[in-house]
Design a protein around this nucleic acid. Structure first.
Length: 475
DNA sequence: CTGGGGATGGGGCCC
DNA sequence: GGGGCCCCATCCCCA
């Protein structure tokens, strides 16, 4: 076979034994040949795996044995790449790997994908598969899972993403050449997922399982869905700072971004008084919309799963509640409800002084006491202990802190707006909703009472399922 | 560039 | 189940 020409990636070959001058030429596009060959090779390997032919690698997952080919695993998984490259040189030796961090069912999905390119994702297994893929360092699978989640949730609020989401939401299985770092997807069948609302993925809070790492954030995949780089504790969402408002009840910047934006948030907060009415209306409207979406989110929340972990000494089952969004489990449902806020992005507790919102009342209280009440009896400048007598409260915008008399004199009284709690009770009283005598607004408590700011209880069904929570117990 | 402190967020658990 | 406290991790700011 002679190489005739090269058209980019697709090389055209002429069948040998034929005259190019006398007979019609028969051209073979090697791209098609390659695809067919890869497909056939994969089928053969998969058959060999199922028949346990030439399998030189044993993988034990929670007691269930899987047989596979080390070269295939090596090519598909960063974890196995590392494991096998560190293993014994003797290629004749069988390699064993043991996992307890994911279930055999999950590994079956992973293994099937490796050998077929078909990823059998469902709304019930996608989180576990993504977690396992993260563990096994299979970025392509992670991306498929992420896209699956995104599409399932119909996250897009942008018109230009609607089409993509629609096409993806119809897809239940993702296909790819095994080991390929591509995110091409094909429709394989109807989607079994009832898409949760957008806010779920718009949330970018910390992920206890940490199943989305840097790689995932870096690879936005061919779908073009934008993600933001974030802290190692990843986020499911893709949200830019610009689209969020710290005053938003669903203010959900990813961990790092959120903190990076803290300064900006503070600036915005400090400038909030200057915002015009139009902006207020916009914020209010956006808040209402997001609150509605939050309600929708809770209404369609994946079921809260009560799980039975290991048994205690008395052979009594240890009940734990599994987060439907991550692998985290907690002992109490109330704790899970609290934990869910880091996924939903709920921030039901706004500070009335700076409009910053918090996920917990105690955080709001701590913030308020520290920032706005100057509860710390420590001089901000020299850090010495101060009392009501030896120090004064200094106001700086909505911030209050204490300074000792010496530091105040050193800095100069004229430059610092002086205040003291004993002299001015209006703000703490107003903000704390204490029996203040202030006008109108003073009747507000420091935690917002707007209905749309407080998400209702999910009321999710409780499902009992047997899981191994040994890893969680270690946390 | 680095270390310390402050602010914030999240988990465990007690009341 | 909610409130609250404690602890720890992370990030940002600043000296």
């Amino acid at each position: 076979m002679d190489l005739v020409t090269d058209l980019g990636a697709s090389k055209l070959y002429r069948a040998s034994g034929e005259s190019s001058l006398q007979q019609p030429q028969r051209w073979f596009n090697t791209a098609d040949i390659t695809v067919a060959h890869q497909s056939n090779l994969l089928k053969q390997l998969n058959q060999q795996r199922r028949q346990e032919l030439f399998c030189d690698c044993s993988v034990l997952v929670e007691g269930q044995l899987f047989r596979a080919h080390r070269n295939v695993l090596f090519a598909s998984s960063g974890y196995f790449r590392m494991l096998l490259s560190q293993g014994p040189d003797g290629m004749s030796e069988t390699v064993n790997a043991t996992f307890d961090v994911f279930s055999p069912e999950t590994f079956t999905v992973i293994l099937d994908f490796i050998y077929s390119g078909l990823l059998d994702l469902t709304s019930h297994n996608v989180i576990e598969v993504m977690s396992a893929a993260s563990y096994l360092q299979m970025n392509n699978v992670i991306n498929y899972c992420k896209n699956f989640i995104k599409s399932s949730l119909d996250i897009s609020v942008k018109d230009e993403e609607n089409e993509r989401c629609l096409s993806l939401s119809e897809t239940c299985s993702f296909t790819s050449g095994a080991g390929e770092e591509t995110s091409d997807q094909q429709q394989q069948g109807p989607c079994s997922v009832s898409p949760p609302p957008a806010l779920w993925t718009r949330d970018s809070s910390r992920n206890q399982s940490g199943f989305i790492g840097k790689d995932l954030d870096q690879d936005v995949s061919a779908s073009g869905i934008k993600t933001s780089s974030s802290s190692p504790a990843n986020d499911l969402g893709a949200e830019t700072e610009d689209l969020q408002d710290p005053q938003d009840p669903l203010y959900t910047l990813p961990g790092t971004e959120r903190r990076r934006s803290r300064g900006a948030a503070k600036r915005r907060a400090s400038n909030s008084n200057r915002s015009n009415q139009h902006e207020d209306l916009d914020i209010q409207e956006a808040r209402t919309q997001k609150a509605e979406k939050a309600e929708e989110l809770y209404a369609t929340l994946p079921p809260i799963v009560g799980v039975i972990g290991h048994f205690n000494k008395d052979s009594n089952p240890i009940m734990r509640f599994k987060c439907p969004f991550c692998t985290h489990t907690v002992k109490r449902k109330a704790d899970l409800k609290r934990h869910l806020r880091c996924h939903t992005g709920e921030r039901p507790y706004p500070c009335q002084a700076c409009n910053k919102r918090f996920t917990r009342l105690e955080h709001l209280r701590s913030h308020f006491e520290t920032i706005h009440q100057a509860r710390k009896l420590v001089c901000r400048k020299c850090k010495c202990q101060v009392t009501e007598e030896t120090g004064h409260v200094v106001c700086e915008g909505t911030r209050r802190y204490r300074m000792c008399t010496a530091c105040i004199q050193e800095v100069g009284c004229d430059t610092i707006p002086m205040d003291s709690l004993e002299e001015s009770n209006e703000e703490p009283a107003l903000l704390l909703g204490v029996d203040g005598e202030e006008e109108g607004e003073s009747k507000r408590t420091w935690m917002v009472t707007d209905d749309d700011d407080l998400a209702e209880d999910s009321g999710a069904d409780l499902i009992i399922q047997q899981v191994d929570d040994s890893d969680e117990e270690l946390q």
